[in-house]
Design a protein around this nucleic acid. Sequence first.
DNA 1: GACAAGTAGTTGTATATGCAACTATAATGA
DNA 2: TCATTATAGTTGCATATACAACTACTTGTC
Lengths: 155, 155
Amino acid sequence: MTITTSACPSGDERVVLFGLLLETNARLSRSLGVELEAACDLPLAWFEVLLQLRKVPEGRLKMNQIADAIVHSSGGTTRLIDRIEEAGYVTREHCPSDRRAIYVAISANGNQKLDEALNVHLDYLEDNLAKRLDDQERRTLTTLLKKLNSSAKPS
Amino acid sequence: MTITTSACPSGDERVVLFGLLLETNARLSRSLGVELEAACDLPLAWFEVLLQLRKVPEGRLKMNQIADAIVHSSGGTTRLIDRIEEAGYVTREHCPSDRRAIYVAISANGNQKLDEALNVHLDYLEDNLAKRLDDQERRTLTTLLKKLNSSAKPS
DNA sequence: GACAAGTAGTTGTATATGCAACTATAATGA
DNA sequence: TCATTATAGTTGCATATACAACTACTTGTC
C-alpha cells in the first residue's frame, strides 16, 4: 500500500493562509513576550489584561469580560487574575448589583507598569510592524483582521 | 497622586493592530482546535506537525526543523513528538549523516489521519475564511502576513 | 413566593509547554 | 591529534492553562 498523500490539499491557498496566521502570531507573540519579560518582568498575558482594563474608561471589567477579551477559559482567567492581583497590578472588587460577579480593576501600580510595558511594546511594534508594513498596509491588515475576527466571536 | 493613565497610547493604531492579530489568532485556532478534536480526535498541535511533514516531499523533517516551523521550544517539541509517535502517526528515524539528529517521518496512519483532518480543516476554512474574505482579500492578507512573518524569523 | 433553570466565579485535576541542565555527537583549530 | 566549542535532542522541574464539577447567586415561571 503506497502512501499516496491523496488529493493533498495541503497546498490549498486557504490552508497556507491559515498556517501563516498561526505562524505569524506565534513568532510575534513569542518575541514580544520575551522582550516584555526581559524589560519589564511582565508576562504577555498580564500585559494583555492590563491593556484591556485601560481600554475602558472605568478601568475595570468583570471576570467574564476579561476571559472573553483575551480568549481564555473561565477557570484559566481566575488563576491568571489571582497572579496579577498578587503582584499588585489589579484588585478584585465586589459588584453591588450582582453578587455573583467580580470586578477586576487596574491599580496605580498596574497603570504604572502598563505605561512601562507600552513603551517596550511601541518600540517593538516600530521594529516589527512599522518597519515591515507601511501605513496603508497596516490599515488594510487591520480591516481584514477585523472582518475575520468578528465572525469567529459567537462561534 | 492621580492615575493619569499618562499619554495612554493604548489606542495607538499599531497597538490595536497587534491586539487584533492576537485575538484573531486565538479565536480561530481555538475554534479549529475544538472542531479537529471533536471530528478527528486530533489536537491542533499534532495537525500542525503532520501538515509540516506533508509539505516536504520526503515526508520527514528533523526535530529542530519541526520545532522552528511550529514555533515551539526544543524540549516541548520532543514531548510533542513523543505523544504523536505513541499514537502511531509518526516515527523517529536515525539520521545516517549526523548521529545527533533524528528524523521524524509521517506514517501511513499519519497520512490517513491528516487527510481526515484536512477535510475538517477545509470545511472550517470555508466557513471562517472564505465566507468572510473574498479571493482578493485573502490574497492581500496572505501577502501582508508573509511580509510580517519573514521579519520575525531570525529574531 | 418557591422552584427550576441559567449564570459568575472558583477549585481539583490533568496536561502541555518552556527553561535550564544534561548527554552525545560534530566541527573547529592549535 | 586532542581540546575546545557548538549543536541535536532529551529530561527534571516549574508553571500556565483547560475542563469539569462545584458553590453561590440571579432570573424566569407557575
